[in-house]
Write a protein that binds this DNA or RNA. Structure first.
Lengths: 214, 214
DNA sequence: CTTAAGAAGATAGTGCCACTATCCAGTACT
DNA sequence: AGTACTGGATAGTGGCACTATCTTCTTAAG
């Protein structure tokens, strides 16, 4: 298959395919001559995965490359899952600073909240986990907005999150040891987020319609 | 308070404050002279909200403006919640087209899945809801990747999403009829997503560590 | 064999977004 | 009077995700 057919099959413009190659998201085709290369089904599949991660998962090109690199270096299943888990971008970035005193206070309180939550949930996570850091940031900002969660409230959310993660891992486990396991695992881990978010929004829409807050 | 103090209090550069004003995210200060205006606590609060929506919620400037407009036009609580629910951006955009035949098939199947889900959950949502459209897109793409959810699987996720939305609305309801209700409601509706996503990622990290998929 | 239609790779350009910097006339303290 | 600062207008910047162009080469058609 030549690049033009690969483009037709996937709906991705030729120029974009070249771009993805340059950025290391897509392996090169098998060169048959100085200006000719042959592409296969694996390239079609990879392009679909790239589009899914970027358009559905909302990943940047750089993040997509990191994730795909983790997929490609898959050796043990566990290692792959862990690598993917860390390669996925964290959806919260640092916010601006304000009054140093208040900030420090809010930061400390948020740290304590997170530590307390992890203890209550009996979660086993790295201290250096980017997710811990990001959650601390998020809780700190909510605190500055006077919209902080009370500990029990946070635990209620965490339990639901835990259940979702359980469904995710179950889905990943159900894949067994197929050769494309790593690829399917990344789909489950990376695209479960957007799907659950949409379901939540839909449920929110339903409940807003039904419920009155007066 | 002059603009420089507003900047110092919030950590937002003066140029950015002017930018937000231009974009209609922040009301103008009370002009005391041709080249002088007075800002108040409400501006500090509004800037914090803007930063929270953009950095935590991941909203674009345009989406933030839409949401804040909905907040400002709050008359009835219910109407406000509904307006916010629709003003929040949908996290999934359309993906590329490929083989027209397969696409049409996948699209039809995804539509059926969504309709089935809504019926099973007994959700009351608008047919034209952007969330329905986005979920259809997401399920279609997953189908094209051969990673589609079986109906029961989707229902399991939906039930958890429903529970999360329930917690959200409870939180919003607990705010009562405070004058800043609309502002607090937008925080709950818009920032619950990132928080639950982080909790899910944290739970995922925990379970990946504990569980082997072998 | 000639020729036109791609193909590969390198490089430069585009459009959008979220700021950020500069400039200007006007104001306020000292 | 001088300096620092202000609001408002306008232009510029840097990053990102492509997209277009150019050059050299290959291959299938006539």
């Amino acid at each position: 298959m030549k690049i033009s057919e690969l483009s037709r099959r996937t709906g991705v413009p030729v120029a974009s395919i070249k771009y993805f190659r340059r950025e290391g998201l897509l392996p090169a085709g098998r060169a048959t001559a100085a200006t000719l290369a042959e592409y296969g089904e694996e390239h079609v599949q990879r392009l679909r995965l790239i589009k899914a991660l970027t358009t559905l998962g909302g990943l940047s090109i750089a993040a997509t490359r990191d994730v795909l690199t983790a997929v490609d270096q898959a050796e043990t299943t566990d290692g792959t899952l862990r690598a993917i888990s860390y390669a996925l971008p964290v959806p919260v970035t640092a916010a601006s600073a304000g009054d140093p005193d208040r900030d420090a206070q809010a930061e400390a309180a948020a740290r304590a909240d997170v530590a307390d939550l992890i203890a209550r949930m009996d979660w086993e996570v790295a201290d250096s986990s980017p997710h811990v850091q990001a959650l601390t940031t998020a809780l700190r900002e909510l605190r500055r907005l006077h919209a902080d969660y009370r500990p029990e409230g946070l635990v209620a959310y965490a339990e639901l999150a835990h259940a979702i993660a359980g469904l995710d891992l179950e889905r990943a486990a159900a894949l067994g040891d197929s050769p494309a396991l790593a690829e399917q695992a990344v789909i489950v881990l990376a695209l479960s987020g957007p799907v659950i978010e949409l379901l939540r929004r839909l449920a929110q829409e339903d409940q807003v319609r039904r419920r009155s807050l007066g």
